[in-house]
Nucleic acid binder design. Structure first.
Lengths: 316, 316
DNA sequence: AAACTGTTTTTTCACGATAAAAGACATTAT
DNA sequence: ATAATGTCTTTTATCGTGAAAAAACAGTTT
């Protein structure tokens, strides 16, 4: 039984393409947005820091901006000549990392059904279907394996363990242990810690979102992640902090996949978060524990109901 | 500041070597040991299952055994002609996986001192020094990153976080949470579960080792791992079970590195294990908890004392 | 017919090569 | 003297390629 994809392909390039310049393209697009705000751009190192890329990439960006008449560039002087036009931007899909492309393809197949536990995953086939090299697929699978959804057979194929009820239960069990601990650690943080300011800002964002829930309910996913990461960070334990990557990944795709009653679910969750935030601010361990438990319980419930009840995985 | 190795190299091969046949060589050696026991070898599929390799590899082994006059091979008949001679075996170092070679080199450098937190890790340099391709090093680093000792900067180098006191504390914190839970789950396992038999056998191994501790104290490391893995498995949680890989890895190198009072430490640990085993067999949650806590506390202490107190890592 | 052997195809593993991106060095401007 | 720009070098990301190993297929033997 094989984990057989259907149809896709992303990197439609003929032959020996070595590396896409998506870092440049993405930074270019972000730099375009900067143009609206100023009449002249800062120094190259400063721009690099701002965009999170090296000076080499900054110079490529500036070179192109000069070419397309967006700026006049002479040494330190980088004067903005005109506002960016929509088609100055590189297309969105060209700014994605290969890793992102592979992950999306892989998750689509995994969630699109027909991906039963026990199936084999074929590196070569995946690479061909997505239109990338085998090395990138291999590296993706290795990174992905820490999420506990796939497993490698020595000198052989990968095996899909499946997005099952058991997986969700094991995941949430750890999540609950870690978050309760982190929340307790958070409570014990000194009054002058910057996290209290972060928490206040998050609270305000929650309230703002609650007010416009009817139109902005789909923005909750991102806010949810930032909130829980703030709490987990209070544990000061890299394993706890890193584990949130697993949760974030699962919830990210879960949110994309399960749109049933999204608005209602998010509205409830915002309420729970606000209650949780109040508890944290009270620094009362009992209250924190109760609010945290309550929220985690409903989060688990939401996740569980989104899992299709399918055939059991066979023991290897 | 760079994570600069000293001198090594393992894969002393000239040019375009694609893949070493270590799977074949290792299986061949193991198959030689089988020869002592029987007058004729089983069928190809059966041998494959026994050695954990494919039939293709089995046939390569048989072909060579025929060549070197170890067996007469005609279809189903594989008669042993003579006992294997010491130099029928492939040298040990040729049977190692590339991943093992890289891991050993890397850990040697990491533990050999001079590897301070914050240092950069250079893929190309590591690959050159070890004498392997960059891809293998990359894949190793990706796999290794889950141990929490290194971290990747996007589009750039890896950063060594260092085998510090903080690392050990974070690691043991999780270990203690997970093992206490697992031990409790173990206690709740039904009387007819096969784990009780496993536990009895482990207990006997502990007693045997305790009797000959003077000469066999270095065998404890392996027994320790098997014992703790048995307990962790009772959690029925893949994240808990997988986390033991991190602990096992750290303790494996810790045991190799820190030989101070090895015999005494192991003797104490065996005693704690036996007490822990008794507690488990009593199925008394209070006793189990106490025994587990006691052992984990001394394990943490041992690990902590082995960490050299060095300069603090700089915040990034 | 079930299980084995012989043969062919497919997949994994590991490499070198090359463009993109980062980083280091040298030079120039404030 | 500091901080920028201009230039050159090194490293990372990704591919195609080929041998090792696995897996699939076909033909035999019990």
């Amino acid at each position: 039984m094989r984990f057989k994809p259907a149809a896709a392909s992303a990197g439609m390039n003929g032959s020996g393409m070595s590396k896409s310049n998506n870092v440049y393209k993405d930074a270019y697009n972000r730099c375009l947005r900067l143009l609206d705000e100023t009449r002249s751009l800062p120094s190259e190192p400063e721009l690099g820091a701002l965009l999170g890329v090296s000076r080499t990439t900054v110079r490529s960006i500036l070179a192109r901006m000069e070419e397309t008449g967006l700026i006049a560039w002479n040494k330190r002087a980088k004067t903005v000549l005109r506002d960016p036009h929509p088609d100055d931007f590189f297309p969105e899909e060209e700014t994605d990392t290969l890793a992102e492309i592979i992950e999306r393809s892989f998750m689509r197949r995994l969630l699109a059904g027909g991906a039963e536990a026990g199936m084999q995953i074929n590196e070569l086939e995946l690479a061909r279907e997505i239109g990338v090299g085998t090395t990138s697929v291999r590296e993706f699978l290795i990174r992905f394996s820490r999420f506990g959804l796939i497993e490698k057979r020595r000198n052989s194929h990968w095996v899909l363990k499946g997005f099952t009820r058991a997986f969700a239960l094991e995941l949430t069990e750890i999540r609950e242990i870690f978050e309760l601990r982190s929340a307790a650690a958070f409570t014990a943080l000194p009054r002058d810690s910057p996290v209290w300011g972060d928490l206040d800002r998050l609270e305000e964002e929650h309230r703002a979102l609650a007010r416009e829930i009817a139109t902005r309910f789909n923005e909750f996913s991102e806010l949810d992640e930032r909130f829980h990461r703030l709490i987990h960070r209070a544990s000061h334990n890299r394993f706890i902090v890193d584990f949130y990557d697993v949760i974030a990944m699962i919830f990210h795709y879960h949110y994309q996949w399960n749109k049933a009653q999204e608005r209602e679910r998010n509205e409830v969750a915002i309420g729970e978060h606000l209650f949780y935030i109040e508890a944290l601010k009270s620094r009362d361990l009992g209250k924190v524990d109760a609010a945290c438990r309550k929220h985690l319980k409903s989060a688990r419930q939401t996740l569980l109901t989104s899992i299709p009840e399918s055939r059991q995985p066979q023991k290897s």
